[in-house]
C-alpha cells in the first residue's frame, strides 16, 4: 500500500514549468530516493509535498487522505514529517527541550497554561529515547546553538523523528557533512529504514545507492527514470542527462 501517492502534480512559475505532470509514490516501509541535478525541481517538489507551496494541478494523497490543499501543520499532524536541507532547529532551547517541543506537537493539546512542561515526565522520557536513537544522548543539556554542524544535522533528524511520523521527508540530510559524519548519518538512516516510509532527497550518490530501495531521477520537473539502483545505474538516459557529470561506482 502506498503511504504517499502523487499524481499529475504541476507547478508553474510564470511560464516556467518546475513540476511537470509528476507522478511519484512511496510505499509503506520503503526508502525511495529522489535524485536530480540542481534546478531539476527537487526543492519545489518538497515544498509542495510538505505544504509550503500550493501546486497548480494534481493530487497528493498521504495515508489515505487527499492533502493537496492542506496547510503544512495539518500534514504534520497526520504524520508527514520533514527535515530541512538548511538546519532548522530552536537555537535558544537545549537539545533535550528541542526534542521535547517536537514531541509536544503530537501528544495532546498544547493549549495548557498552568502545568509546567518539566513535570511531564512522559514527554521527557520520549525525548531522551529519541536522543538515544539519534546519538545525541550525551548532549541533552547543551544549548542547541552550541552544537557542531554534524550534531545539528543529527538534531534536525531527531526533530523529524520526534513527531511520530508515518513518512519521513528527508531533504539532503548529508548536506555539508564531512566523510565521518556522513558515514554516521547513513548508518542512522539505515536503522530507520523499514520502520518508516522515507522519501530521501540527496546529492551524495554513495549514500543514495546504499540506502534506497527505489531511486527516481528528476529532470526538468519530471521523473525520467525510476527503479532499483542497478536499473538506474544502467539507464542510458539517466547517464546522459545527469550522472555523466559524476562517475558513479
Amino acid at each position: 500500500m502506498s503511504m504517499l501517492e502523487i499524481s499529475g502534480l504541476k507547478k508553474l512559475f510564470g511560464g516556467l514549468v518546475v513540476t511537470d505532470n509528476l507522478d511519484l509514490s512511496v510505499a509503506e516501509g520503503e526508502l525511495h530516493a529522489l535524485i536530480g541535478p540542481n534546478g531539476a525541481g527537487k526543492t519545489t517538489l518538497i515544498a509542495q509535498i510538505s505544504g509550503s507551496l500550493a501546486p497548480d494541478d494534481g493530487r497528493i494523497v498521504f495515508a489515505g487522505h487527499e492533502i493537496t490543499r492542506w496547510p503544512a501543520y495539518r500534514r504534520a499532524q497526520l504524520g508527514l514529517s520533514r527535515s530541512f536541507q538548511i538546519t532548522s532547529i530552536f537555537p535558544s532551547f537545549t537539545v533535550l527541550d528541542n526534542v521535547a517541543l517536537a514531541i509536544q506537537a503530537r501528544s495532546g493539546s498544547s493549549f495548557r497554561f498552568w502545568q509546567p512542561v518539566k513535570a511531564e515526565s512522559a514527554l521527557y522520557e520520549a525525548a531522551l529515547e529519541i536522543l538515544a536513537r539519534t546519538g545525541l544522548d550525551a548532549l541533552g543539556e547543551n544549548p542547541a546553538a552550541a552544537l557542531g554542524h554534524g550534531e545539528h544535522r543529527q538534531l534536525e533528524l531527531a526533530l523529524a523523528l520526534a513527531t511520530q511520523p508515518k513518512l519521513l521527508l528527508l531533504d539532503e540530510p548529508m548536506a555539508g557533512l564531512g566523510a565521518e559524519d556522513s558515514q554516521r548519518m547513513v548508518e542512522l538512516i539505515e536503522r530507520l529504514k523499514s520502520q518508516y516510509a522515507i522519501l530521501l532527497v540527496e546529492h551524495d550518490m554513495d549514500a543514495v545507492f546504499r540506502l534506497a530501495d527505489r531511486i527516481s531521477v528528476l529532470m526538468s520537473g519530471r521523473i525520467i527514470a525510476s527503479g532499483s539502483g542497478e536499473a538506474i545505474r544502467s539507464n542510458a538516459e539517466v547517464k546522459l542527462a545527469y550522472l555523466g557529470e559524476e562517475e558513479i561506482a
Partner: peptide
C-alpha cells in the same frame, strides 16, 4: 506559570523558528 507550561514553550518555539513549528504540526 504560562511561560513554563506547554503554551509558553510553543510561543518561545515560534519566536525561535516559526517555520519549523509549522512543520512539526
Amino acid at each position: 506559570r504560562l511561560d513554563r507550561a506547554r503554551f509558553g514553550k510553543v510561543l518561545r518555539g515560534i519566536k525561535d523558528n516559526e517555520l519549523r513549528m509549522e512543520s512539526l504540526g
